[in-house]
C-alpha cells in the first residue's frame, strides 16, 4: 500500500538526480536551497531554538553563503550531523558544505579528500575541573577520570597529552555535550575536556560557574573551519571567499548597518571596499556570481566581528573573548587575503 510513498519519493529523487551531475554551484542554484551540515546541537555554534530556527556561529557562515549564492539567507536546509555521519554526508553529496566545528587536519584534507576553505574559529583543547579539587595544571591530573566527547580529534589529543607527560587517566567517552555535562556535574568524572570554546559555553550554563575553572593548558591546535568536497574548486572558492569577505569586512570596517550605504556607489578613497562590495572591478563575476554577492553575505548577520559578538561573544552567555580570533592588526590570527 504505502509503496507509493517510496515510489513517489523515488521518482522525485530520480528527477533530482538528473540535475545533480553538474557542479555544486549549479546544483545549489537549481535546487534553490543550500544544504549545510551542522552539529546536532552545540549552543553558540549551531543549535535550533524553541521555534526550530537554527542559530549560531557556524549557522551564520551557512546563511552568508546562501545569501551570496541564492540572495536569500533563509534558503538553507540545515542537516544535523554527528561526528560519524558528517564526512559521509559531505562525500556523498547529501550536503554542499559542512560547517560543524570540524578541525582541519592533514588526514582529513589529504586522505579523506576534503577541502578546508579556511578557519572560522581558532580553538584548542582544554580542561575544565571543579575548583575544590585544587588543581592548577593539567599535569597534576594523574589518575583522574576524564569525560570526553567522542567523534572528534579530542580523544587522540588527550591520549597524546597524557602519554607525553607519562601520567595515567580513565577516559569516559560521551556522545553529546549535554550528557558530558551531566556526568561532570554529578562527579562521575573529575575533568571535562573538549574545545576551549565548548568548555566556556558549557560552564556558562552551570548554576555556579565560579566553582569551576578551565586549566591554563591548551593541549592542541584546533583550527575549525567550513569544508567542501575535494575537486569542485569553483564551489570551494565561493565558500572560501564568502568567509574571507566576512573577515575582510571587519578589517575594513564594513558592518551590517553601513554595508548598504557603502555599497551604493564606489568611493575613490576606499578601493578595497569598492572591490569587496562590487562597486568596482568584477570579482563577483569571476566567482560565477553577481557583483553584489559579498554585500548580501555581509548584510545577513554583519561582518565576522558582529557574528562573533552576537553568537559567542562576551555579551552572550557563552562569553568568549576574541583572543586568537581577533584581526591580525589586533594581535589575532584572522588574516584574510586581499580582495584584488
Amino acid at each position: 500500500m504505502n509503496k507509493s510513498v517510496v515510489f513517489g519519493a523515488l521518482t522525485v529523487a530520480g528527477l533530482a538526480a538528473g540535475a545533480a551531475a553538474a557542479g555544486t554551484l549549479d546544483d545549489v542554484k537549481a535546487r534553490g536551497k543550500l544544504n549545510c551540515g551542522v552539529s546536532t546541537g552545540l549552543v553558540g555554534f549551531a543549535a535550533p531554538d524553541a521555534s526550530g530556527e537554527w542559530k549560531g556561529f557556524d549557522v551564520a557562515v551557512c546563511r552568508a553563503v546562501a545569501a551570496a549564492v541564492l540572495d536569500d539567507p533563509s534558503a538553507v536546509e540545515f542537516v544535523p550531523t554527528t561526528g560519524k555521519t558528517r564526512f559521509t554526508a559531505l562525500a556523498s553529496g547529501e550536503i554542499d558544505m559542512l560547517a560543524r566545528n570540524t578541525t582541519w587536519t592533514f588526514s582529513r584534507d589529504v586522505d579523506l579528500k576534503f577541502e578546508f576553505v579556511g578557519v572560522n574559529y581558532y580553538d584548542g583543547q582544554g580542561f575544565m575541573i571543579p575548583k575544590e579539587l585544587g588543581v592548577s595544571s593539567a599535569k597534576e591530573l594523574d589518575g583522574a577520570t576524564v569525560c570526553i566527547q567522542t567523534g572528534t580529534t579530542t580523544e587522540l589529543n588527550l591520549a597524546d597529552f597524557f602519554r607525553a607527560n607519562n601520567i595515567s587517566y580513565e577516559p569516559v567517552p560521551i556522545e553529546t555535550n549535554a550528557e558530558a555535562q551531566q556526568q561532570y556535574l554529578a562527579g562521575a568524572c573529575d575533568v571535562y575536556t573538549t574545545d576551549a570554546s565548548g568548555l566556556a559555553a558549557t560552564r556558562a550554563t552551570f548554576e555556579n560557574p565560579g566553582d569551576h575553572i578551565v586549566l591554563p593548558e591548551i593541549v592542541s591546535k584546533e583550527p575549525l573551519g567550513p569544508l567542501v568536497r575535494h575537486g569542485d574548486n569553483e564551489w570551494g572558492d565561493i565558500v572560501r571567499w564568502t568567509l574571507n569577505a566576512l573577515i575582510s569586512a571587519e578589517e575594513l570596517g564594513v558592518t551590517s548597518t553601513n554595508v548598504a550605504g557603502l555599497g551604493e556607489k564606489a568611493n575613490p578613497e576606499t578601493p578595497e571596499i569598492n572591490r569587496l562590495l562590487g562597486t568596482e572591478g568584477n570579482l563577483g563575476e569571476m566567482l560565477g556570481l553577481d557583483a553584489d554577492w559579498a554585500k548580501r553575505a555581509i548584510a545577513v548577520e554583519g561582518n565576522y566581528g558582529e557574528i562573533f559578538e552576537k553568537n559567542i561573544g562576551e555579551s552572550t552567555p557563552i562569553g568568549l573573548a576574541r583572543g586568537l580570533n581577533g584581526q591580525w592588526k589586533n594581535g589575532g590570527l584572522l588574516y584574510s587575503p586581499p580582495f584584488r
Partner: peptide
Amino acid sequence: VISMFDLVGAIRGPILAATEWNGVY
C-alpha cells in the same frame, strides 16, 4: 543515533543542548 531528530533525538540533540533546559532529564 544517526543524527535524526526523532523523539529521542530531539531530546538528546537540540533540547538538552539548549542552555535553558540543560539538566532536565
